[in-house]
Amino acid sequence: MLTLAHYLVLSAIIFSIGVAGVLIRRNLIVMFMSLELMLNAVNINLAAFSSYLQQMTGQIFIVFVMAVAAAEAAVGLALFISLFRNKQTINADEINTMRG
């Protein structure tokens, strides 16, 4: 039998993998992909609750999350291009101009 918990745990696993990805990778692009992964995990959550509660609202919110993700990807990748143009690197460890 499938319960709500199945989906939520699945979502938690994917979310944690995303967090791990953001924390351990040095390539900014891959870090960003991990971010998308986390957003997807959240989407699974929303869809599961939408189904469980018989409510459309959850699915509506998935669309908004996607819109934000798309916007974020566009701006973020533009930033990387600009950054790479100036620094010749997208290695997170080498970008520390803001060090105190």
């Binding site: 696993i13 944690s16 993998i17 791990a20 924390l23 351990i24």
Partner: peptide
């Protein structure tokens, strides 16, 4: 990073 992510997962 892995430990932090694992702790987060367990907590959830």
């Amino acid at each position: 990073g892995s430990v932090v992510a694992l702790v987060l997962f367990l907590q959830i």
